[in-house]
């Protein structure tokens, strides 16, 4: 990546974000990626005068992450989205949809996690089919 990335810990996160807000940064968004079975990688993107700055947080799936939506109201949708997609909990969200922003009951939980806590055979329908396909070592047949 061209821009600088600063690593932060979960405890220092809200403080760092508040500092950036004072400096006049605008929250662009959060990007979440799954690293392995128990860790997620969250990037916080900020922008000032068309320059980007990123904060990187490595969060264990089981622990809750403090929400930055009290600082930046704009973070509310994206944090809810990550709750839907990855099953991570954000603490202190301004409006909490509890994992139902996009998904209904029958859609699989945490669809963006390849390593699910539940085993694949407990799922059924298209979800299981998708999983079987993605775990296939050579997914080139498409």
């Amino acid at each position: 990546m061209r821009e600088e990335i600063m690593a932060v810990s979960a405890e220092a996160l809200v403080g760092e974000v508040a500092k950036l807000k004072v400096l006049g940064y605008r929250l662009v968004t959060l990007s979440c990626t799954e690293l392995d079975a128990s860790n997620l990688d969250i990037l916080y993107h900020f922008d000032k005068d068309l320059g980007l700055k990123h904060l990187r947080l490595t969060a264990p799936k089981a622990a809750a992450v403090p929400s930055i939506s009290p600082v930046y109201f704009a973070a509310l949708l994206v944090e809810n989205e990550i709750q839907d997609f990855f099953g991570l909990r954000f603490e202190g969200l301004v409006v909490d949809y509890r994992g139902t922003l996009y998904l209904e009951e029958e859609a699989l939980k945490t669809p963006y996690c390849r390593f699910s806590l539940r085993s694949a055979d407990q799922r059924e329908g298209p979800a299981a089919a998708l999983d079987a396909e993605t775990n296939h070592p050579n997914a080139e047949k498409f």
């Binding site: 963006y112 993605t134 080139e140 498409f142």
Partner: peptide, 8 residues
């Protein structure tokens, strides 16, 4: 976004 897993 998840389709990135199965499409090159």
């Amino acid at each position: 976004e998840r389709l990135a897993d199965i499409r090159d």
